[in-house]
């Protein structure tokens, strides 16, 4: 899947779980700017898994994966490549 499409889908999911309150950019911090808490992060994961037909292990995503939107897109991209 093209990275641009992954990026669009990730941003849409983030918009949905944050009720479209934020202007989400590639360098937006997921934890600090979007104020994602422990429940919303689980929602994020569930939605990512559904959207991309993935199953994330704790080895696939780290704290660094949630640094910015860009790093999350990269992590999804890598997991997709790893699974194919």
């Amino acid at each position: 899947m093209e990275k641009r499409i992954i990026e669009e889908k990730v941003k849409k999911i983030l918009n949905d779980i944050t009720d479209n309150v934020f202007n989400i950019q590639n360098n937006t911090s997921i934890i600090f700017d979007l104020n994602i808490d422990s429940v919303r992060i689980l929602c994020l994961l569930v939605n990512l898994e559904r959207e991309f037909n993935l199953s994330f292990g704790t080895e696939d995503l780290t704290m660094d994966s949630f640094e910015t939107v860009e790093s999350l897109v990269l992590a999804v991209d890598q997991t997709l490549n790893h699974n194919t």
Binding site: I31, I41, L42, F56, T58, L61
Partner: peptide, 9 residues
Amino acid sequence: NFALLPMMK
């Protein structure tokens, strides 16, 4: 583990 990420960040 994932639920802990915000706290750890």
